[in-house]
Amino acid sequence: MQIIIDPYSWLLGLAGGLLIGLSAALLLIGSGRIAGISGIAGNLLFERGPDRGWRALFVLGLILAPLIVGWLRPELRAAAPTVNAGMIVVAGLLVGFGTRLGSGCTSGHGICGISRLSPRSLLATATFMAAGFVTVYLIRHLPGLA
């Protein structure tokens, strides 16, 4: 194992993380809601009710912000996955199905759930991280698959 030593990238990561934490704090203290993206997106699409308004605006902000950041700093612009279309469809289906089945993703379990020391979220986060590590290992390092 080699490690990329790039303190500037770590600083950007920390700054980005602080903003994500601030977003979760604002939504929690202001509106009493969890900043879990799979839940916000899934409920926006499939549930009726009074929470549709803020969820739609949250998603709008989520889409608009990268444009502003990317306009100021082109090197930070969003990129597309590089795997082929078939793999993208499989990955998308798994991410959509899995996050709803498991009640959360990197934000709802990973940030908010760990912050409230939820045993379900701690276990879910450990599990999807491990599954991600194993998947990348199999794709990149298993002879014959790469």
Partner: peptide
């Protein structure tokens, strides 16, 4: 905030 954080990070 969330979108900016994801992008910067």
């Amino acid at each position: 905030l969330f979108g900016a954080g994801l992008t910067i990070g």
